[in-house]
Nucleic acid binder design. Structure first.
Length: 300
DNA sequence: AAGCGGAGCAACCGCAGGGAA
DNA sequence: GTTCCCTGCGGTTGCTCCGCT
């Protein structure tokens, strides 16, 4: 037996909202509260006299009717923020790399459009997502992926990681990399989430390491590595705050064509109950780091 | 003027997490 | 400990607008 539907789909209106519906919803929420606790979205439509699904009401409010919503085009500054944050935490490859390699777990809001949106007051996750998918992605990822392994592993080559043609790199925004952006953000998130700060048990990768697997201790598996070999990374929990998972492993390989560190998409628990991402290479409490090459054919 | 296709964006869908019962 | 309900999220769809032919 499946889930009970959130509403009677036969008797709810769908599609674009009319001004009258907007007014009714806005009026109801402004007089009854809109913080999500005072209002029960499922039962709200009936109370507000709307023939809409509760989820639809919620979405309409959050994405359009809220008084603090900023309508209109994105500014260059907002472009930069999105690109920067996506650069740091938006890429699937990078994200899995984080998860598997950095032990960065306590991240309920990590890699969320809502987090990126939270850096821009008045913008919603839907806005940012749409904007990214329709404009920024094309703008930034339209170029051919370059092989970063053949380049000097500089921070500036971060842009190459995302396939941004040299000529199209923003000069004054996301990829102007005079400052090591990634670690500062990671550190910030880390501090916010855990209240801890880096110490000698916490690894701090510099951006070069972060974006260039070859600098991060992954063995160069050579031509045979591509889709034939993987690197197994064992991560052992070391803190007392770990609650339910003692260890995990990820399988990564270095795509020689793209320069991407890829994973095979299994076994990574995004919402693990781990309270920090603290990790280290080679200290006495951790067993982190490349442990060798596994013939991936054996796995299958 | 009409038709077509692409871009932009609002809205929907289904899933997962978390809390209450 | 289990089940159910609600919320929040990312991915996707589909409608509307606009420019081009």
């Amino acid at each position: 037996m499946g889930r009970t539907p959130c509403c009677d789909k036969e008797n709810v209106k769908r599609g674009p909202w009319s001004p009258e519906e907007d007014a009714a919803l806005k009026s109801y929420l402004q007089s009854h509260g809109s913080d999500g606790t005072a209002s029960n979205w499922i039962h709200l439509p009936k109370k507000a006299g709307l023939r809409r699904c509760g989820k639809s009401c919620r979405l309409r409010w959050l994405n359009y009717l809220r008084p603090d919503i900023k309508h209109g085009g994105f500014t260059e500054e907002e472009d930069s923020i999105i690109c920067n944050l996506y650069n740091q935490m938006g890429s699937r490859q990078v994200f899995n790399y984080f998860l598997t390699y950095l032990h960065f777990f306590n991240s309920p809001n990590f890699l969320r459009w809502s987090v990126i949106a939270s850096y821009m007051p008045g913008r919603t996750d839907n806005d940012v997502k749409n904007y990214w998918n329709t404009k920024l992605k094309k703008k930034l990822l339209g170029g051919k992926i370059k092989n970063i392994s053949s380049k000097e592993p500089t921070i500036a080559n971060n842009a190459n990681f995302f396939g941004i043609p040299e000529a199209e790199k923003p000069q004054d925004s996301a990829f102007s990399t005079s400052e090591p952006q990634v670690p500062s953000t990671l550190q910030m998130l880390y501090d916010v989430n855990s209240g801890l700060s880096a110490d000698n048990q916490t690894m701090s990768l510099n951006p070069d390491q972060l974006y260039n697997p070859k600098l991060s201790g992954f063995p160069d598996l050579g031509a045979r590595s591509r889709r034939n070999y993987s690197t197994t990374v064992s991560l052992s929990q070391e803190g007392s705050s770990i609650s339910d998972s003692s260890s995990m492993a990820g399988n990564l390989y270095l795509d020689q064509d793209s320069g991407f560190l890829m994973d095979y998409g299994f076994g990574v628990a995004y919402d693990n109950n781990v309270n920090h991402y603290g990790m280290s290479f080679g200290d006495k409490t951790s067993e982190v780091g490349p442990t060798g090459c596994t013939d991936f054919g054996d796995f299958f």
